[in-house]
Simulated scan of single mutants.
Amino acid sequence: MGVPSAHGLPGTGEQHAAVEDQSIQQIIEDHRLRSAYLRELTRALSGHDGAWPTAPVPRVIVQFWDDPHSIPPDVSQCMRSWSALESQGFRREVYGDDSARAFIRSAHTPAHVAAFDACPHPAMRSDYFRLCYLAQRGGFYVDADDVYQGTDWMHLFRDSRLRVQALCYDTATDTMVDAHHAATTDEDPDTWIHYVNNNPIITPAHHPVIEAALEAGTRAVLSRGSGAIDIQSMTGPGNLTVALARYACEKQQQEQSVDVEILSTWDRVAVSRWPLSYRGDERNWRLWRQS
């Protein structure tokens, strides 16, 4: 499938701008166009070096568990694996519902606090809190079930670009496709959906993608009706993917570089551990029964 270009379209002046804006909106709203665009974006932004700002991303590892006083032992083991980086200048901050709410209250608006409180599942509050934290302070967010593999991580902090993980899901087999293979192979079935994860997120403070995802998530949570909650699209990877796609399109439209690296080999640094005790009950958002 061809991907609409964000620049170089026919027309001049206001007509040219209108066509470009329509192209961006088409990519954002059409899930197949957005998937194709994310595939090409991943190819373009995977490991690309250049003259990027070198101001350091804060060396803080941020994690979340709704009740940090009752973290399951197997999850705690995963979280503690990142303590290995403390000897290399990192500090680790673990937040729960109460401390996350206090941070949001101190750093953002009452609307953001209300949005956090309106997230009914711990996974959704985790999604929302990481955006609140990183938008304000920057740093390195990693999920509680990711296990550090002890490999080199220095390349992830070599400049101040936003870094997120590429994902690809095959709807035909209900399985994930290896991200590096999905980004580099010439094969691209219509059943593959390319997007980015909201774990890990490595970013300087106030990156436009994170701020846009935060505000979109806030609007989505506060304006939702009584229907089912789609965590992925409201506060999770879907929300971040849309924010990234819009930002990259606008940057390309302006013929500017996109200050993002999309990681297709994150599993060399960390892996999500399976199984874990909480995955078998409603603490796992995939098994959550909405009332």
Rank of each mutant, 00 (worst) to 15 (best):
T218Y: 02
P275M: 11
D159G: 03
T184C: 02
Q290M: 09
I27C: 11
S257K: 13
M79S: 07
L41A: 03
R246Y: 10
R279D: 12
L263E: 14
M79P: 08
A220V: 02
A17R: 09
Q77C: 15
V147A: 06
R43T: 15
R39Q: 12
E187Y: 09
A212H: 08
G2L: 15
H31C: 07
D74T: 08
T235A: 07
D190N: 11
D67K: 10
Q88T: 09
A100V: 06
Q232F: 12
S126G: 14
V3D: 03
D178N: 08
P73A: 14
E40F: 13
E40H: 14
A111Q: 13
P122I: 08
G96T: 06
W82V: 06
T173R: 13
G150S: 03
A135V: 02
P10F: 08
R34E: 07
T241A: 12
R105H: 11
R273H: 13
D170T: 04
V75I: 14
A6S: 15
A228H: 14
A166G: 14
A179W: 01
W65M: 09
P53W: 09
H194Y: 15
L214S: 05
I262S: 11
C78S: 12
H180C: 04
L134H: 01
E211T: 10
A182I: 01
S99Y: 07
I201A: 03
C249Y: 05
G139M: 07
G89E: 05
W288F: 07
D267N: 12
V269T: 15
I24L: 15
A220S: 09
P110S: 00
I61A: 01
L131K: 07
V164I: 13
I28W: 05
R34S: 12
S5I: 05
T12E: 11
D74K: 05
E40Y: 12
L33I: 09
Q63P: 09
P72V: 11
G150H: 04
P10T: 05
N239I: 01
L156V: 11
A228N: 12
H69L: 14
Y247R: 02
P189E: 01
P275V: 09
H155F: 02
P68S: 08
V142M: 00
I202R: 00
C168K: 02
D267R: 13
A36V: 06
M79G: 03
T184K: 00
